[in-house]
Simulated assay, not measured.
Amino acid sequence: MSNTTIIKLPNKEEISTGHVDDSDSLRLVENRRFTYKELEVITHGFERVLGQGGFGHVYDGFMEDGTHVAVKLRSHSSNQGVKEFLTEAQILTRIHHKNLVAMIGYCKDGEYMALVYEYMSQGTLLEHIVGGGRSFPWRQRLRVALESAQGLEYLHKGCNPPLIHRDVKATNILLNARLEAKIADFGMSKAFDHHNGKYIAANTFVGTLGYVDPEYQATMRPTTKSDVYSFGVVLLELVTGKSAILSEPEPTNIIHWVRQRLTRGNIEGVVDAQMHGGYNANGVWKVAEIALKCTAQASAQRPTMADVVAQLQECVELEESLTQDFNTGGSNIDSSWNYNGYGSGQSTDVSSNATFETELRIPTVPLGPGPVAR
């Protein structure tokens, strides 16, 4: 496998706009470059599909040293182009955090383009949330929430320039064999200069139905608070066990659904019944309140990801300080739960009906930040 030296790093303007020259940007990751034939060997002829999205198929693979990997190969019919491919490759070569999915290498061999990631054996968070009755206890959900928040906080504060993910959702949070959560899919990410207060305006509106910040939708200017909003939706999914858009009894977003019930003090009507009462009501209230703050209509009223991490850490400490009466498995998992790395049928790609243009209007409900009744 190729092992050449990194020659050039992009400047902030190149990264933030995505306008990086193809030939130059490829040098960013040439120390991790694979040929197409090497990927054929790694994947045993692209034998086992782990998932599929707008970029293409994700394949199971093993490196020469036995390292388990996931290979995302761009389809010729993909609606994601070279720009998105290069954006993700560039970002993943310069970000390193325990709660971000790591890139092992990449391939751009003629017409073939692929990204090689660490293998995440327990699939997407969404698969666990709607796992069909399998054990996903409150303590585990709390840990996943905290770890995901830590990954986003790193993007916002630990990167130079900082990054806005722009497509935070339950299918872009993956879990490894130890059920540790990691943020994935950076093809639609954008950099911003927080020192000058300049945010990147995009020509194309990117997001997923149910997770999109209404302020971003209106202004076309994503900010870190756009990610905070989306993460708030993920928190509500963890609490309720429901998806971002509820279809019954009529289509509504999860924020409106939860807010209606919590204003009546109905915490039992909100919490996922599959947890079978194995939670502390005060802890669940706290997380739900954090989520509703994150999803305030005005971004100025939302917390930062650093604030969210601190508050979730308090929730974890509260949970750990309680008695162990309801030990439903903690970090354990049903042994029959055999998820593949990228979800059978659940794409970790940003697109595949996830990315849409500005003319698609998302049904929103006025969700003022008002106090939550107890």
Rank of each mutant, 00 (worst) to 15 (best):
37 K>D: 14
51 G>V: 07
105 G>N: 05
51 G>W: 07
109 D>A: 07
31 N>K: 12
74 R>S: 13
29 V>I: 06
112 Y>H: 15
88 E>C: 04
22 D>L: 13
55 F>Q: 08
31 N>A: 12
30 E>M: 13
23 S>D: 13
50 L>T: 08
117 Y>M: 05
40 E>R: 12
26 L>G: 07
52 Q>M: 12
115 L>M: 04
56 G>L: 09
23 S>P: 00
104 I>M: 05
84 E>G: 04
87 T>S: 09
70 A>Q: 07
72 K>L: 09
90 Q>W: 04
88 E>Y: 04
35 T>I: 01
24 D>V: 12
25 S>I: 10
51 G>L: 08
77 S>A: 15
46 F>A: 09
91 I>T: 12
55 F>I: 08
32 R>W: 00
40 E>M: 10
85 F>V: 04
72 K>R: 15
111 E>S: 15
23 S>W: 07
57 H>G: 04
106 Y>M: 08
101 V>M: 08
66 G>T: 03
25 S>M: 11
102 A>R: 15
38 E>C: 02
101 V>K: 06
61 G>W: 00
120 M>R: 07
108 K>M: 08
34 F>A: 02
58 V>G: 03
47 E>F: 09
88 E>R: 10
69 V>A: 01
31 N>S: 14
99 N>S: 08
70 A>N: 09
25 S>Q: 05
65 D>R: 01
103 M>T: 02
88 E>G: 01
73 L>E: 12
34 F>Y: 15
43 T>Q: 08
